[in-house]
């Protein structure tokens, strides 16, 4: 039974309880075709548990996972057919060569030809070392072999769990370029989890932020970053200015820095409007500064006050 919609991956009300602890609580999100979707959260937020449920390693306590229109619980074989994944480290058989590893996993899926194996080897640029045993590989090479393995079945959805773990900066940049290329050229949707936020900011179209097993927000990165900016006002008199700013609904977190400066969070397109109001009330505005937020700022703001223990 195939559900018809535009999403490659659709997760509804997913929960997992292990023992008495609810590790993932009622998660819902969708991944569109061809997009790179970031799954962000601190360590222990439930990222890995969620990913393991997405690939069928863990049975959800509640909820539904639809991959390419197939329910993962009911149509496991159909649903998983179009998924390539690396869960945590790229662990392959160290006593086999790179090529033997790929052939091993190719034999588990119908219709993967020798040409396809050569193709993915070419794609991840492992041609020279492919006939060496994996135990002689560097971490970066293992990572690439892991991706080659994930790409073998021409997946529509690539799931990568913390793919940059342990890579050096050059390796991270290389991986980023590679993932971009996969999404734009091959139309593969990529679901990528990370706790290193600036990495994902540069890569993802949309992100979901998960904290203590719950999704706090799902949005496009540009919207998340641009929906609010930090705006610094240099005005006189400060007290009166604060009163006015506090009355405006879309201005939040009004904070007096010193005698003349106030820091606010607000949408950037409303700056002129606020400026008008200030002038109307006879407040001297001598400076307005905009700061672009990073995902880190947003993330910290969202998870603030939620810290229990």
């Amino acid at each position: 039974m195939k559900h018809q919609d535009d999403f490659v991956l659709s997760v509804e009300g997913l929960s997992k309880t292990i023992g008495k602890r609810e590790i993932v609580h009622d998660i819902t999100f969708q991944v569109k075709a061809g997009e790179i979707f970031g799954f962000l959260g601190p360590n222990g937020a439930g990222k890995t548990t969620t990913i393991r449920m997405l690939v069928g390693l863990i049975r959800p306590t509640k909820g539904k996972i639809i991959i390419d229109g197939y329910d993962l619980q009911q149509d496991f074989l159909q649903a998983i057919r179009h998924v390539g994944c690396i869960v945590e480290n790229p662990e392959l058989y160290p006593y086999l060569t790179g090529r033997e590893n790929l052939e091993h996993f190719a034999r588990m899926v119908k219709g993967i030809s020798q040409e396809r194996i050569d193709e993915v080897i070419e794609l991840v640029e492992l041609k020279e070392r492919i006939d060496d045993t994996v135990k002689t590989y560097s971490l970066g090479m293992r990572q690439r072999l892991g991706i080659a393995q994930a790409l073998l079945g021409k997946p529509k959805l690539l799931i990568l769990d913390e793919p940059t773990n342990g890579l050096d900066p050059a390796g991270i940049r290389e991986l980023r370029t590679f993932i971009r290329q996969l999404a734009t050229q091959e139309g593969i949707s990529v679901f990528i989890s990370s706790h290193i936020l600036h990495e994902v900011q540069l890569l993802c179209d949309r992100v979901a932020i998960i904290h203590q097993g719950k999704i706090l927000q799902t949005n496009s990165v540009t919207q998340l970053v641009d929906q609010e900016r930090k705006v610094e006002w240099i005005i006189h008199p400060v007290e009166k200015g604060v009163q006015i700013l506090k009355q405006i609904s879309y201005v939040s977190q009004v904070e007096i820095i010193d005698q003349a400066r106030i820091l606010t969070h607000m949408p950037p397109e409303k700056i002129a409007e606020v400026n008008h109001q200030m002038i109307d009330k006879n407040i001297d505005v001598t400076g307005i500064k905009q700061y672009k937020q990073t995902l880190e700022d947003i993330f910290l703001k969202m998870t603030e006050g939620n810290q229990v223990g």
């Binding site: 390693l57 074989l77 057919r81 994944c85 945590e88 662990e91 996993f105 588990m108 899926v109």
Partner: peptide, 14 residues
């Protein structure tokens, strides 16, 4: 122990 179980069980094979 080697973690390869994760790859083995995420194939389209019951």
């Amino acid at each position: 122990a080697g973690g390869t179980i994760k790859l083995l069980l995420t194939r389209p094979v019951p």
